[in-house]
Simulated scan of single mutants.
Amino acid sequence: MSLAAPDTQDDDTARPRPAGPRRRSGVAAAAACVMLGLGLIGGAMTGSWLTGDGSDGAGTPDAFTAAGDLWHSVPVDRLFPPTVKGDGAGPGGADRVWTRIAVAPDSGCGDALDPLLQKVLAPAGCLRLLRATYTDATRSHVTTVGLLFTKADAAAMGALHRRFEEQGLDSRRDLMPRAYAAKGTVAAGFGDGQRASWTLSVLTDAPVVAYAVSGFADGRTVTEPQPAEDAMKAGATTPTAQAGLGHDAQGLADRIERSLRKTAAPATEKPS
């Protein structure tokens, strides 16, 4: 609050200002402003405490840490819904619907990832790997989605994310994730040679690496697998692109990531 400058006139002949009602009302107004300011400051401090926005973060659940605990605290149907709708997720903006056909037991990384990909992800550590396989409405495509929960903190995940971006590691064929070929399903023949398209994201707001890899349900070998980003480009003519397998991988990965974030959000909310 800005107050008027004091009267510094030195002229002894100047008439003193009367201490009448105007002066008293001015003092009262100033006092009211000070009280109002203190009230606003107190209110802001109270609001910060209630919403967990204090600078020290005391008592505020850490969203990053909360997301890392989801692998053992949330039912599988929330991480991998039985049915996933992909409005506009197909080629040309066509709608997609994917149905879950198998869920792998939660495990370490072990044989679930190629050795070279394990090596690249090693700095983040492997706490748990969750996987599920889906098929499209025609049951001609199969897609495995994975959520690798790491042991890394936010700084380490940020460094790994930058490395993937700067070196283009997410588009290297020798770093493709493996599929989960569930016996007794249309994905039973979904092996390494059947992988057609994939996407992989190192998240920075959660200690998670999310990926998806797609292929044909008939078990055919794919000689030219493509990153989902390339397979989705207009004018792409490979069998992978023409079949929309890039859209399957990217569409499912995006929606499973959104589901993960949506599930993590309530864990960081304060009770009212």
Rank of each mutant, 00 (worst) to 15 (best):
K233Y: 00
L245T: 05
G246V: 03
L203G: 07
E257D: 14
L245R: 05
D248F: 00
A212W: 04
R255E: 04
A253F: 07
L245S: 12
V202S: 09
S214M: 01
V202W: 11
A228F: 03
D218W: 02
A217F: 04
A212M: 02
A231S: 13
A236F: 03
T223D: 12
A228W: 02
A253P: 02
L203S: 07
E224W: 03
P227N: 15
M232C: 07
R220P: 05
D230V: 12
A253L: 05
V213T: 14
P225Q: 07
L203N: 12
R255D: 08
E257M: 15
T263L: 05
A243T: 07
A241V: 08
A228E: 02
L200K: 09
G219F: 08
R258G: 11
D248I: 02
P227R: 02
V202R: 08
V202C: 11
R261C: 00
A264C: 13
A243G: 13
R220S: 10
F216A: 14
P225D: 11
A243R: 03
Y211Q: 02
L245K: 05
K262M: 12
P227W: 08
T221C: 05
P239Q: 11
A249G: 15
D218V: 01
T237A: 15
A234Y: 03
A243V: 04
P207M: 05
D230H: 11
V202P: 12
Q250W: 13
T263F: 05
E257H: 00
A249T: 01
P225I: 03
Y211I: 01
G246D: 08
P239R: 07
T240G: 15
T221F: 02
Q242A: 14
T240N: 11
A249F: 05
R220C: 07
V209I: 08
V209M: 01
A212R: 06
A206Y: 12
M232H: 00
L245A: 13
A206R: 12
T240W: 08
G244C: 06
E229S: 15
D254P: 00
S201N: 15
A212H: 02
G235W: 06
T263A: 14
V209H: 03
A241Q: 02
T204Y: 06
G251Q: 09
I256D: 10
E257L: 07
G215D: 04
P239W: 01
I256C: 11
S214D: 08
A236C: 10
V208W: 06
E229A: 13
A217M: 01
R261P: 03
T223S: 13
G219T: 04
I256Q: 07
P239Y: 10
T237E: 14
G246P: 09
T204M: 04
V202A: 11
D218M: 04
F216S: 09
K233G: 10
